[in-house]
């Protein structure tokens, strides 16, 4: 049977365009327009009471760049994003590897188990962590029962990291599983027959072949970690100020929409940088 090439068939090309058009429109309306609005908002003026004023100004931007507080906030946000992503990766990788090596219905079951947390909203799961990590919570009580003084696990950076890692693990596991396509048990056996010890097999064969999945998972988790505000808000106890939580405060509490817009654009820049890095690294890995 001959396959009809889309490029050679003008009717086929039109059809493809027609099929793409709706999603293109949705993207323009639901993504581009709000982003442009956001950029425009960052040039509006806000009074000290939070009211929006007429006219265009770059003062919010200048204020932002001139204030070391926001620079350190960007730095902290990126650092937290990286830290959370790395911990998520370290915890998810063995799980994903284990699941990817099972077969048939057991594998399907394990995949469902791994991603089932996504069925529950992040808010509910975070409340769960508050119950577990809280001063009267399950974990500190256990530590106390075994005769130690529990460290503070919530209302600080530790709580945010624990909560975020758990929230992000399903995404990481899914990305890793999708990226493990090139992994083949035969390759590992082949390396073994060539004289590679198990750890060498992992380092020289398994790890390089799972890099695409690792990169994808890291990009996804970094972006989600940097942009999430519900979990940090609930577990930080006001002690960890990140870009996303600051945007929330400025937009919802202080009503300084221009500043919130500036910070949102800043976060987009961070994401852009992450994407570029991802693109570069993917090319190296390929």
């Amino acid at each position: 049977m001959n396959t009809v090439s889309v490029n050679e068939n003008p009717f086929g090309r039109k059809l493809v365009l027609a099929c793409l058009l709706p999603i293109l429109l949705v993207n323009i309306v639901a993504f581009m327009v709000p982003v442009l609005n956001l950029a425009a908002m960052s040039f509006r003026a806000a009074s000290s009471t939070g009211s929006l004023e007429e006219g265009i100004t770059v003062s919010t931007w200048l204020g932002l760049f001139g204030d070391g507080y926001y620079w350190s906030m960007v730095g902290r946000t990126v650092w937290f994003g990286i830290l959370i992503t790395i911990i998520t990766l370290l915890l998810s990788y063995p799980l994903a590897l284990f699941v990817s090596r099972r077969e048939g219905s057991l594998k399907a079951f394990l995949v469902v188990v791994c991603i089932s947390p996504l069925l529950i909203s992040a808010v509910v799961r975070t409340y769960g962590w508050m119950v577990i990590l809280g001063d009267q919570g399950v974990l500190p009580s256990l530590i106390r029962a075994s005769g130690f003084t529990p460290p503070r696990l919530i209302n600080n950076e530790t709580g945010v990291i624990i909560g975020m890692v758990e929230i992000l693990m399903p995404y990481m596991i899914l990305s890793l599983l999708s990226g493990f396509g090139k992994l083949d048990a035969t390759l590992e056996q082949a390396a073994g027959t060539l004289g590679a010890r198990p750890f060498t097999v992992f380092r020289r064969v398994v790890l390089p072949l799972s890099l695409p999945g690792i990169l994808l998972g890291c990009l996804l988790c970094f972006v989600l970690a940097v942009s999430s505000f519900i979990t940090p808000k609930m577990l930080a106890g006001g002690r960890v100020s990140l870009l996303a939580t600051e945007i929330y405060d400025q937009a919802i509490v202080t009503l300084n929409w221009p500043l919130a817009a500036c910070l949102s654009v800043l976060i987009l820049v961070v994401f852009g940088a992450a994407l570029v890095l991802y693109g570069r690294l993917s090319k190296i890995v390929e």
Binding site: M130, D135, I154, N155, K233, M234, A236, G237, G238, R239
Partner: peptide, 9 residues
């Protein structure tokens, strides 16, 4: 230093 949370939920 005495405060547990600055943003109780």
């Amino acid at each position: 230093p005495l405060v547990q949370s600055w943003e109780p939920k």
